[in-house]
Simulated assay, not measured.
Amino acid sequence: MTGFPWAAFAVNLAAAAGAAFAVMLTTFAVARVKGMHRLVDIAWGAAFTAVALTTCALSTGHGDDGRRILVTLATAVWGLRLSVHIARRGRGHGHGEDPRYERLLAKAPGSRDVYALRTVYLLQGGLVWLISLPVQLAQYVAVPLGASAVAGGLLWAVGFVFESVGDFQLDRFKAGPDHRGRVMDRGLWGWTRHPNYFGDFLVWWGLFLLACGTVQSAAVAVVSPLVMSYLLIYGSGKRLLENHLADRPGYAAYTARTSGFFPLPPRRRPDPEDPRP
């Protein structure tokens, strides 16, 4: 990237790592006192917000102001909504640990806290730094906003709405006293088994497009949505959640008629009296 402020960006990379790990280590200290490492889920969105704000401050005078402000706001709105949503949802779990972390920490060869620090907090801090590359890079790109930024903003907006509506619908469903133990298959959840993860997927491809001021910036930033897509579909997102829900009554039928990730019309329920296979 001709004219790209590499020296300033290198300083920013270090500062962004510091911001991400500061959020994670602070969360670890609080979680250790409370004995609940599920608090790290709240820190995920907050860490991205910290990186975006840090980069916005450090990139002053380097990148295009319109792009800087747009990327910072998009990341902060997404990150803070996610953190607030997870914090509110966590109130319903009382003071216990999340079963996912119970299973993970049961494998600890020594101190559970040290194991959690190494395999959860530091790992997530590193992922925040890596995945936030478009957020950091975009704020140092001096090219004014163009067609790719418009497309990225629209993609981000669709993803944000999809994720927010999906979370809202699931919360409303869980609040119903007659829905305990039942599978949520209404609204967006009738079109995809993971509307929240699909929304995340669109958000990060949108942020990637916002960083595409040049071909070179796109080539550097593309690692972020690729990593996030892998995590959502094959890593700690969809795969782990479906393994957890596999034994729930009605879940097998739900998976048979509902798309695994990308939204599609629900498949027709099989008719038991239909002789066709």
Rank of each mutant, 00 (worst) to 15 (best):
G18E: 03
T49A: 11
V77L: 14
A142P: 12
A57L: 07
W205I: 00
D178C: 04
G153R: 12
A17F: 14
T72E: 02
Q124T: 15
F173H: 11
R248G: 11
A8R: 04
Y121R: 08
R186P: 02
V215Y: 02
A149F: 01
T26L: 15
A108S: 12
W156M: 10
R100S: 07
G206A: 01
P270V: 14
L13M: 03
A16V: 09
V120M: 13
D41R: 05
G45N: 06
A219D: 06
A157H: 07
H93D: 11
G176K: 07
D171G: 05
P195G: 03
G166T: 08
L122K: 03
A211C: 07
L202P: 11
A31Q: 09
F9N: 04
W129K: 07
P265H: 11
P266Q: 12
A50F: 01
I69G: 15
T119N: 15
M36S: 13
R180E: 07
S148E: 06
V77T: 13
A157M: 13
I42V: 15
R268Y: 00
R248T: 13
D65K: 10
L122P: 14
F198R: 05
G126N: 10
R88G: 10
A46G: 10
T214H: 12
M228S: 08
R68C: 08
F28P: 13
S224L: 04
A46T: 10
V203F: 04
P99R: 11
F168K: 08
W6V: 14
S217W: 00
F21R: 08
Y230P: 00
R267N: 14
W129H: 12
E273V: 12
A253H: 05
A116P: 12
V11H: 07
P266A: 03
F28K: 05
L130R: 11
